[in-house]
Amino acid sequence: MQAGGLGAVTKTVEGFGGVAKQYEQIEKVSAHHGNSWEVLLYEQIGRDRALMFDLAEKLQFTATSEDGRVLDALAHAQRNEAARGEYISALGEDGGRVDISSGTQNWQKAVVDRTRPAQFVRKHFEAMVFTCLAEELRTGDVAVVGSEALRRARPPASTPLPSAANWRTGCGQPPRRPTPGTRTTRAW
């Protein structure tokens, strides 16, 4: 064995964040190449977690069809919002398993840990719930109560929107002056 061989390897791995960090990187690459991007999503939306829970609490959602699986999953996520561990219970208030079939097969694989069948991986469950909720809102399968009244109160699409300069002066603020040395027009 070469002098310092194992020590050099250990030192190199530690220099890159340690074994746990390297294992996490390997899982990310594996997920990317295995077309399982869902497990990577929490890192992107995790910093907005509190905002998403706050918004979900303030808005009242309703299913526009008989399928309320996403809203049931959202309610389960909200009940477990204070959880900070890696896992949450897969059982709902009624003692039955929370239905996650509204998510894709990849989501279901990411959410369920085979070694803990009665639990969900919390961060993947939350990411799945908010992703599925966004999709259901986009397709109209879930609606925000009162959103129809907002749509009717909005000016018609043919009404021009005020420009930023007009908005600033309407609020009592002086119009912005161009910063010296910057372009004020765009050349398309």
Rank of each mutant, 00 (worst) to 15 (best):
E126L: 03
H124T: 03
F130G: 10
Q173V: 04
F120V: 06
A134E: 06
D141V: 01
R151F: 12
R154Q: 14
T159I: 12
V144E: 10
M128W: 02
E126P: 01
V121W: 04
A164R: 14
F125I: 04
F130Q: 06
F120L: 07
A157C: 04
N166W: 07
V121F: 09
L150I: 13
L150Q: 09
K123I: 06
Q119I: 03
T131E: 11
P160F: 02
T139Q: 08
T159C: 14
D141R: 06
Q119P: 00
M128K: 02
A165W: 00
P162L: 15
L161C: 10
D141W: 04
A157T: 04
P160K: 05
P156D: 12
L150E: 09
P160C: 08
G170D: 15
E148A: 15
T169R: 02
P174Q: 05
E148N: 05
R151P: 02
R122N: 03
W167Q: 11
T131C: 10
R152P: 00
S147Q: 11
G170W: 10
L161D: 13
P162R: 15
M128F: 09
W167G: 06
V121M: 08
S147L: 14
R154V: 03
S163N: 01
H124E: 10
R138V: 03
F130R: 01
L161W: 09
C132T: 07
A164I: 09
A157G: 08
A127I: 09
A165Q: 08
A165C: 04
A164C: 03
K123Y: 02
T131Q: 08
Q119C: 09
R151S: 15
F130D: 07
T131M: 09
S147M: 11
M128H: 02
W167C: 11
P174D: 07
C132A: 12
G140F: 03
R154P: 00
L150A: 14
L150R: 11
A149K: 15
A127G: 10
A164G: 01
E148V: 01
T159E: 14
C171K: 11
V145F: 03
V144K: 03
R152F: 06
L150F: 08
A143Y: 01
A157H: 08
V144H: 06
V129F: 04
Q119D: 14
G170F: 13
R122P: 01
P162W: 13
A127H: 06
N166L: 15
Q173Y: 09
T159S: 15
S163M: 02
V142E: 04
E126S: 09
V145R: 13
W167Y: 13
R151C: 14
